[in-house]
Design a binder for these strands. Structure first.
Lengths: 161, 161
DNA sequence: GTTGAAAAGAGCATACA
DNA sequence: TGTATGCTCTTTTCAAC
């Protein structure tokens, strides 16, 4: 829970986990950042406990998995009800990601997945019912995620990418 | 590369990986979905090769890591230049996520991280220089990610959450 | 906090049903 | 295609620095 300053070992570890958090071993990471594998394991545990690393998730290509309807629903929630509403819409089927921003209008983005467009339309109605006033619905074209370059600054050459 | 239909074993595996892709072992997953651990390993490899699973990433809390400036930059890129511009802005320091949607206006969302606001402001200028006409910049409040509930439908009770 | 070595456990490949 | 066994590698633990 505590906010800790990260040193170059922490940053290197996170950078390599950002490239591949499942198949990079502590041994490999240790060689790259210059410490023993057991130290890497200790550091990772500490980062997890402190909340800097909040979990590990696969990047799923829903289109390839047969779910062709993939939308970003942008809406507005009153600031004072925001946390409550976010908890509620997390329960809506097909919702896989929710972002909130600190503006008064259009302050919620909800990523919704489904097999068909009509299914997703129902789900968007469900968002409305739970307190999101939907401003617009956009078809997601592509999403790309990448490591924070600053975390990789102290690292040796990256051959495995 | 091929689009494959997923069966309930595939869906259960992905669901459990979406909860924790680093610490859930193939053995645990096998017990939950009802197949042998080696079968789980085979399925995961197949899902990776087919592109349904495109990678594994930690969820990093940049605020707790000491990077207090975290913004979503919404901008417009002409449709015909979109892929090119996305490749370019991926190179901008501090850019960790890029989403594109199929609309003519405000079709790109870029997530930018930095230690101070002035650093991030420079980076937003860099986005402009590379072809994104920035419409607005929003402070990210919170982001939540969760498994696709449909993948978990065939699963036994979830005690480990 | 870090290390290195031993023990325990997971993953991988082969062979088989 | 799914399962089981054996081999290899990783992770974990812990005494010592």
């Amino acid at each position: 829970m505590t906010k800790r300053e990260l040193d170059s070992v922490d940053r290197g570890i996170i950078y390599l986990l950002q490239q591949d958090s499942r198949n990079h071993t502590t041994t490999e990471i240790g060689e790259r950042v210059g410490v023993a594998a057991s130290t890497v394991a200790n550091r990772i545990k500490k980062l997890e406990r402190s909340g800097v690393i909040a979990g590990y998730h696969p990047r799923v290509d829903y289109e390839k998995a047969g779910y062709d309807s993939h939308f970003i629903v942008v809406g507005t929630v009153p600031a004072e009800k925001r946390d409550l509403v976010v908890d509620e819409i997390a329960e809506v089927s097909g919702v896989v990601n929710i972002r909130t921003v600190l503006t008064d209008e259009e302050n919620v983005s909800v990523e919704v997945v489904g097999a068909t467009q009509s299914v997703v339309e129902e789900r968007i109605e469900a968002l409305n019912d739970r307190g999101v006033s939907v401003v617009r619905t956009e078809m997601l074209k592509d999403e790309r995620e990448q490591p924070f370059d600053h975390f990789g600054e102290g690292l040796a050459e990256d051959d495995s990418r």
